[in-house]
Write a protein that binds this DNA or RNA. Structure first.
Lengths: 240, 240
DNA sequence: TCACATTTGTCCGTATGTATC
DNA sequence: AGATACATACGGACAAATGTG
């Protein structure tokens, strides 16, 4: 009968100053005291308020910035502003972990397929008119991009983000956002997608949206499988 | 035919010094120049090497620390050391995003079920003897924990991390690590799991491992479904 | 167009706590 | 116990950016 000291007893004061500061500010965001769009006091003012040095405040702000809580701007009327979403900053750590452990693109593609097939099930159950509209809006953006002679790679990645949102389960949004970041990064480094490929992908997306709108589950599953197979081929061919 | 200036033209020098430093160090880790366990020069030395101030080095180190690239220790022979894994630091940003967007536990549980069922398919296909052994080792740890009068909540969470590893696809490891962090955090804040509940979970895990070892796919799926339903009940009851 | 004020970004000097030898 | 080497932390100073009058 050994009691569990490790969870009962915590370090009294091993925490560093900047950690106290960043945790305190995080808490103010979580409990709604600090709302998105709101301006934080200047670094000097924060240092006075917390009764710490400006260096500690700066290191705390770096943490909050990297975590996506705030963005900072220099100059008059500059400073730290609370962000409205943390989704985009989620992807950095995920991508770092991915690269650090040298995960293969193929593994990522395979896992992504499994997860997105689940997402689709949720989408067919829960998608409403607004979601269908958002998906169609993505198709319009992608097509206009294509019409101006560029590939629609970014828009076609975004399609899957919008799809995840239509599942009405934000957990999927976070996960898919992270995974799609891998493909976005891959494109920025290596990929030069042909416009014909983009066109084919968009056509597939269009058919998929129609199937979802019509609640044709079997067809939708089939179409998503085809789309992911297409995407897999494009990525793997270009990663040689 | 509007050319895509946003991807063609990048800001010439908007980057801050500490970003340059942290990116440079990240790159050295990614390309293998800096290996896990290796010691970085002191802050003073790094400042000299990069020809920047100590403050910039410190802010860069904060970023690398938060991202999980390094850990720092004070004292002689202290300093920054390259980490061997980034998995554990992956969870912080995920958890922050989760809280920031106030995702419901139920959504998280539902998404987790969908994803873990996919993981199980991969596990049944790919798990080898070592994986089965790792899973059994987890059961031993959980039981000994129970025998000493504590709940085995942490070990039972860890079971699912080990399961993800058995899929042989590191993408699943990253995703599951992130999701399980939500439950680990939940426990640390609210949950007081009864030992009887832990015992029941462990028995379920044991049956699941046996089914996986015997490659009985249908049975394994059934058992995992039951386990997740159990976990869902325990969490939701305690979150009232 | 041109200062001016404010705030971040950066560097330096110094002091303290901490861990190792 | 004392010396050493490092992170941690504070304060002062100046440069760079940026909005305002």
């Amino acid at each position: 009968m050994v009691p569990d000291y490790t969870t009962l007893i915590e370090p009294v004061k091993n925490r560093r100053t900047f950690e106290e500061v960043s945790d305190k500010l995080k808490e103010l965001v979580f409990n709604g005291t600090l709302k998105p769009g709101q301006q934080l006091p200047s670094e000097q003012a924060l240092a006075r308020l917390f009764a710490v040095g400006r260096q500690s405040v700066r290191e705390a702000l770096r943490i909050l910035e990297l975590s996506g809580f705030i963005k900072t701007r220099a100059g008059t009327r500059g400073g730290a502003v609370i962000e409205g979403t943390m989704l985009s900053k989620m992807t950095g750590p995920f991508l770092d972990t991915f690269k650090f452990h040298k995960v293969s693109l193929e593994d990522c593609i395979n896992a992504r397929k499994a997860i997105e097939m689940s997402v689709l099930e949720f989408v067919i159950r829960s998608a409403d008119d607004t979601d269908i509209e958002n998906l169609r809006e993505n198709l319009v953006r992608a097509k206009s991009r294509l019409a101006s002679g560029n590939s629609a790679y970014e828009e076609n990645i975004d399609f899957h983000r919008v799809l995840a949102r239509a599942s009405k389960n934000y957990t999927f949004c976070i996960v898919m956002e992270s995974i799609m970041a891998v493909f976005a990064d891959f494109k920025s480094r290596a990929l030069d997608v042909r416009t014909e490929q983009s066109k084919k992908i968009i056509e597939g997306h269009e058919a998929l949206v129609n199937a979802i709108a019509a609640k044709k589950k079997k067809l939708a599953i089939e179409l998503l499988e085809k789309d992911l197979a297409n995407a897999k081929m494009i990525v793997l061919v270009n990663s040689e």
